[in-house]
Amino acid sequence: MISTKSSISKQSRYRNADGIAGSAIVAFAIIMFAFSFEFTGEAAIWPRAVLVLLLVLGIVLVVRAGRDPKPSQRTDGTPQHDDQHNIDGESLSRTVVAAPMAVLLMVIGYAALLEIIGFFPSTVAFLAGILWYQRVRNIVAALGIVLVLNLVIYYLFVFELNVQLPTGILFGEG
């Protein structure tokens, strides 16, 4: 009985996820289509055709999510996973996405810091933050990662590949 209830709840969650994804696709297609009104002549035809196709597919996904008794599965009947061997289709609940979103926010902060304090200081700050978040409490290991990674990047990108890594507005020449 409990397992039936849980299965129904899981199916409804999947349906819900497909419905939300479909709605987001429809909204995205409409917004982008509105932007395409700025384009002139021939330049507008292809993007509009592609957006109309996306709109139709999004609507089909929403309708299917409302109708189908079970979540969308692989067309070949195998368990749902993508090409990177991770379980997909798991609900985007708050507990599931909390850590990935925290990681993403840290990467966003890192990218923003690059322009302010430059590559190496922001990399040290980012690594310190994310290693702590990942529950790395071994100070020697953490210091080793920070030091070795910075040295490898310096050698590979600056010394070998001549990449001008950002110096930042605080420490850079301008």
Binding site: V103, V107, Y110, A111, L114, E115, F119, T123, F126, L127, I130, L131, Q134, R135, V136, A141, I145, L149, I153, F157, L161, V163, Q164, L165, P166
Partner: peptide, 26 residues
């Protein structure tokens, strides 16, 4: 937990290095 931070830094520096552009990181 040790690999993920290294991969993330390589994601950022690799994206930047193609055109020396922060826009590519975004």
């Amino acid at each position: 937990k040790y690999l993920a931070p290294v991969i993330l830094v390589l994601c950022v520096v690799g994206s930047y290095a193609i055109n020396n552009s922060i826009a590519d990181v975004w």
